[in-house]
C-alpha cells in the first residue's frame, strides 16, 4: 500500500506542479477528442465491417480482386 501511495503522490504532485505541462495537456486532450471522437466516429468508419459484414470479409475482398 505504501508503494502505491508513493506512486500516487509522485504523479499527483507532478501534475499539480506543472506549468507549461498544463498547456500541453490541454492541447493533448483536445487533440485526442478530435481524433478519437470526431474523426474516428464520423469520418473513419470501418469500411469492411460496414460493407462486407462479419465473417464475409474473405468473399467480399476476393470479389474486389476479381479481374
Amino acid at each position: 500500500m505504501n508503494t502505491i501511495h508513493r506512486i500516487w503522490n509522485f504523479y499527483y504532485d507532478g501534475f499539480r506542479s506543472m506549468t507549461l505541462g498544463r498547456t500541453l495537456w490541454a492541447v493533448i486532450l483536445v487533440k485526442l477528442f478530435i481524433i478519437f471522437v470526431v474523426l474516428k466516429l464520423f469520418f473513419f468508419p470501418d469500411y469492411l465491417k460496414e460493407h462486407a459484414g462479419k465473417g464475409n470479409e474473405a468473399e467480399f475482398v476476393s470479389q474486389k480482386l476479381a479481374p
Partner: peptide, 12 residues
C-alpha cells in the same frame, strides 16, 4: 484509421 477506411482491401 485511414487503413481501415480508405485502404480496406489492403488492410484485409
Amino acid at each position: 484509421f485511414e487503413f481501415g477506411t480508405n485502404w480496406s482491401n489492403y488492410s484485409y
